[in-house]
Simulated assay, not measured.
Amino acid sequence: MDFSQLPPPRDPIGQMGAPYNSLQIGTFVSFVVTYFMATFFLACRYFQALKLIKNIEIDLIILTVCYGLALAYFITMVGLMDYGWARHMPEIIASNYLNLLEFNNKLLPNTLIYLITPAVTKMAMLTVLFRINPSVRYRICVGVVGGCIFAYTFVLTFLTGGPCTPLKGDETIKCLMNVAVAQSVLNIASDIAVILLPIPTIINLQLSFKQKLSVGAILGLGSAVVICSIARLPYSISLQTSQDLSWEEGILGIWSIVEINIGIVCGCAMRLKKLIVAYLPKMGWNSSHKKSTPYGSHSWGGTTAAGSKGGNKTFDEANGTKGDYQLHSVQKGSVEAGGSTDKILD
């Protein structure tokens, strides 16, 4: 590596911890801002679960795990800063503080946490999507997407902890970079798959275009994080040819922090309709709901299954499930028989 081509250090040369440079400070700011957002939305989800729904659902439990992993990821990143993370290579070399063994020891848990967390977040979103349509075909598709996410995450995690482990030193650097690129590409593909899953259900809704748009916006929130995944990809690719690896890793780390925390925000936001309806009625959800249901008798708290015997049973009664955020029926027809899934996310 030719360090003569790199910019000279701007900060005092010494131990690699504080004082932090601009990129490291940017890492702190990115985490504080996005983690505050994640905290706020997660708190809203818990308020809704305890106050309105009276039930802690599986997706909320999974998102809580992601919330803890996001904090652990940032803590490991701060530890890496003590060994040159997000600093220029000339500065690290000149400081005589280059300790690759300690750096790699801290890099391994940092990498493993990042590999796992986005996948866990998407699993939370899939648990929500799984319940919006009782069609066997639809639920098989949700299961296939979830299985693929689990499979590639398991393989990449195994490679990082085994054959490509940073504990082996320089001999595994290229392998780790390939893992980073592969994960970035697969994250984008899985994000897009999660976006596409509910589209057929939305298209078949017997609603106005405005109502379909609002339903699509709620479901689409679950994968808005794909923007972060796409923005992160070029930096993952550039690592393979970078002459200033530690600095490039710092930039990549910021995008990783944003991706993880925004994923938590999106996972929470796609399930906050009850809270919005209860406390922000001026947003117009109530009027939209009344237009979309032909019965006009059930409340927001219940969900009806069209075509069920004995009148307007709730969706839960008809399908033998618990919970109250399935889609409201607006047209008679059997989903299992190929009828339209004409429902609105509650």
Rank of each mutant, 00 (worst) to 15 (best):
L112H: 02
Y152M: 12
T241M: 11
T34N: 03
K332G: 00
F28Q: 11
S135R: 13
G146K: 03
L197N: 01
G68I: 07
T127N: 06
L159D: 05
Q183T: 13
T34I: 01
M177A: 05
N104P: 14
G320M: 10
C228Y: 02
W255F: 15
A224I: 10
G302T: 12
H289Q: 13
G296Q: 13
T165D: 01
K332C: 04
K210D: 01
P294T: 05
V277F: 03
L219M: 12
Y138D: 04
N55P: 01
V65G: 00
A49P: 13
I132K: 00
I25R: 08
D59A: 02
L6T: 04
S297E: 14
G79K: 06
C66D: 01
A189I: 15
V120T: 14
S287R: 12
F158R: 02
L159T: 06
L100I: 12
L239P: 00
A306N: 02
M283K: 01
L252T: 08
D244S: 07
S135V: 11
S190M: 14
A180L: 11
D59F: 06
S308W: 14
T293D: 14
L6A: 04
V265P: 00
I344Y: 04
Y325P: 01
M283C: 11
P7G: 03
P234T: 06
K210T: 06
Q331S: 08
I264F: 02
G147E: 11
L176E: 07
V145H: 10
Y20E: 08
L112F: 07
T117D: 02
Y295P: 04
L345F: 04
L345S: 03
K212N: 05
I113R: 00
G84W: 09
G216P: 09
Y138F: 15
K51A: 06
G161S: 09
G323F: 12
N178G: 08
V330D: 05
L245C: 07
K313Y: 05
I230H: 01
E171D: 12
H328A: 09
D342G: 11
S340L: 08
